[in-house]
Amino acid sequence: MTTVATKTSTAPELSRARSTSAWLHRHPSARLLGLLSLPGLWLVVAYLGSLAVMLIAAFWATNDFTGAVEHRTTLDNFRALVTQPVYRRVALRSLGVAALVTLVDTLIALPMAYYMAKVASPRVRRLLVVAVLTPLWASYLVKAYAWRVMFAKGGVVDWLLSPVGGHGPGFGLRATVITLSYLWLPFMVLPVFAGLERIPDALLEASADQGARPLRTFRSVVLPLLFPALLAGSIFTFSLSLGDYITVKIVGGASQLASNVIYDNITTGGNLPFASAAAFFPIIVMVGYLLAVRRAGALDDL
């Protein structure tokens, strides 16, 4: 193999490459510095730098008449967010939607993952894993759009429910919760499936031998062991729901969630300081959630 390498390079080029190589070989710290230079510049300087500037901007003011940003420190943005009831309602609604989506996904993912991990044969199991995962690759926007088609007046949902005299929920918060649950379901099925696969069948048999009925085994043996996996899945369902403003625009009718407040203040309002202050809400909730989950030991399950 090495002969191929020496043939393709010309002599001066080769010697230069060799001397750099030898020098780098003698200086491991230079190698490390070289490896860290670009990723470090990109993520620490560019990314963390932009984040820091944005967070600082939350304490800036905007001129009431011109809308121009004024670089003086103030807590007005946060005061407005906390005291005005409309923002409190939007914040609570966002938390409610994120929690509800997490609950719905948990209730659907548990039986599906249980069937995949503990009932289906290995062949079927492989097929099912692929079947559940494949839609992950389909565009997020297309899936949200698909539900807009489903929920449209006279659309598929209305048509399906018409024989029993019902009709779909139409565009609104209910449609938003259903669509978000649909979008993030694989993110819950996957960790729960992995968690169930790790539970030895012997434990379930032992529980049955002791006279526990299946539901009792599920509640007293499976659920406690599965808890970290459920938390790991909930990180995705919860955080992705909390940060979403596209789905609610597509199927939510006139409903607003926390991220819409941020979005509208940037795009139509051009009010960066206020939007930055509003962005503190999802950041604080998510960091708090991650810390709580880490205490329960679920971060290792990701």
Binding site: S50, A57, S239, L242, G243, S259, I266, S276, A279, P282
Partner: peptide, 19 residues
């Protein structure tokens, strides 16, 4: 490295936009 994915996209978005 996980931060840009873990934080809501809109946070990363406006931070970069501003920068």
């Amino acid at each position: 490295l996980l931060l840009p994915i873990a934080l809501p996209g809109i946070v990363t978005g406006i931070a970069l936009n501003n920068a």
